[in-house]
Amino acid sequence: MKLLVAVKRVIDYNVKVRVKADRSDVDLANVKMALNPFCEIAVEEAVRLKEQGVASEVVVVSIGGKACQEQLRTALALGADRAIQVEAPDSPDALSVARILAKIAETEQPGLILLGKQAIDSDNNQTGQMLAALLNRPQATFASEVKVEGEHLLVTREVDGGLQTLKLTLPAVVTTDLRLNEPRYASLPNIMKAKKKPLEVKTAEDLGVTVGSKIRLLGVEPPAERSAGIKVGSVAELVEKLRNEAKVIA
């Protein structure tokens, strides 16, 4: 079975994001970029399925400018076999991304498609679900455990009330949550090997997809800042303040 993993280049999760002075967008000049953490978990899960002998090949795909090849190389260093970069303008909307991925899936015919549940920049949490809809295949979002059983997939999902397990017929789309696995670190020899793995470049036009941006960003603002309050010296003082000053407890 072939696995397809979609990955996104985003700001490194350790970087504190700042709004530009003119409030047109956030400031991404000269900030460290990285593989989206949820995508990294998806790559790790695919590589584990290959190591278990469940999968035969792991193909990673990313959509964006040439810079995203860096993240594809990271995924190859983690154990993916080959990569596809789909050249597209920056910030394509989620539906365009899903349409491009659907075209790739039609060509590659993967048994399972893995994606992160959301990217930590746009926080949209929708591409995987959209892809599943376009392919008319079942989905399991927010996965914390994935088991392949023949033609089926048992996926445990993190839902608001606890955990829910679904049984899907392959091919299927899975989006990863944080506790699915702990991604490995790429070793130096694997980073070197990754440079020689195949990386194919396509364009959105090649795939017949017109990239849209129907959701226009009008501007951004910093979130309302909370200022630090006071330090209290004792539990008794705390309770007194909560009762009589803040009036939030009886």
């Binding site: 930590i120 501007g219 603002e221 979130p223």
Partner: peptide
């Protein structure tokens, strides 16, 4: 967006 570090105003067409 960005884990609540920025609030975006968007218009949908």
């Amino acid at each position: 967006i960005y884990a609540g570090n920025a609030i975006a105003q968007v218009e949908s067409d």
